[in-house]
């Protein structure tokens, strides 16, 4: 997503609509008072979550690509512009764990470096319609969840980022073999704009479901929502 301030100002009117405005009846400008159209669209979006979860096949892999297909330079994208990227100190950084996890001891960078690694050259598809191909490597999320004793029967994984961004995914997608906690891009540690020191890389979902610079990971049965999801973007957003 771009950092367009106008867009952020539309926060409360996420689902209000232009040309069909007359059909909507009352048009509240506050997210706590969604109008009829907002309610209808939320209902359909929840239905589409369920359809996508049913369509999701844990064994279907996202397409992989040759190294020559990698997009260079990589494309930066966040809810702010690149000069506002928050730089995390890798020596002090740790990932906090919360929710239905047996061993909640925070993980440091060295812990992740010592864990098994997997690499992938996959396509990142943005909700806007563009795509880039990149090479990410890191710790398979399924391995990590088992290692820390997460409740694999829980419904949601919740992610919090250093910049205040947050998102969440379903457990089935979290356990997909290509879902990784990425440390490296093109064989080098992630740079701050691209999620240093640790980001979620999940090629079975749209780009905004790949939160960067993670500071906390939780397992929960309570719907956690997310930065864009709360503004009206479809939660499941599977690819």
């Amino acid at each position: 997503m771009s950092s367009d301030l106008d867009r952020r100002r539309l926060l409360g009117r996420a689902l209000s609509f232009g040309a069909l405005g007359l059909l909507g009846g009352c048009n509240f400008d506050h997210p706590n008072h969604p109008d009829l159209a907002d309610r209808f669209l939320h209902l359909l979006s929840r239905w589409n979550d369920r359809v996508q979860a049913a369509l999701f096949d844990p064994a279907t892999l996202a397409p992989t690509f040759p190294a020559a297909a990698i997009t260079r330079p990589p494309r930066f994208n966040a809810y702010y512009t690149i000069e506002h990227v928050r730089v995390v100190d890798g020596a002090l950084w740790h990932l906090d764990l919360f929710g239905a996890i047996a061993e909640k001891r925070p993980w440091r960078l060295a812990d992740f470096r010592a864990a098994p690694q997997a690499s992938q050259i996959t396509r990142l598809v943005c909700v806007e319609g563009w795509r880039v191909i990149g090479q990410w490597s890191g710790v398979p999320l399924g391995w990590f969840l088992r290692r820390v004793g997460a409740d694999l029967g829980a419904r949601y994984l919740s992610f919090r980022c250093a910049d205040g961004y947050h998102s969440s995914i379903d457990m089935a997608s979290a356990l997909h073999p290509q879902t990784i906690l990425a440390l490296d891009f093109l064989g080098q540690p992630l740079t701050p704009p691209f999620g240093f020191p640790l980001r979620l890389r999940i090629p079975t979902k749209l780009g905004f479901k790949n939160p960067k610079s993670l500071v906390a990971l939780g397992v929960t049965n309570r719907y956690p929502g997310g930065y864009w999801e709360d503004q009206g973007y479809n939660w499941f957003s599977g690819s």
Partner: peptide, 9 residues
């Protein structure tokens, strides 16, 4: 839709 999220919905 007014913006992308509304349009997609």
């Amino acid at each position: 839709g007014e913006w992308l999220a509304g349009a997609i919905a």
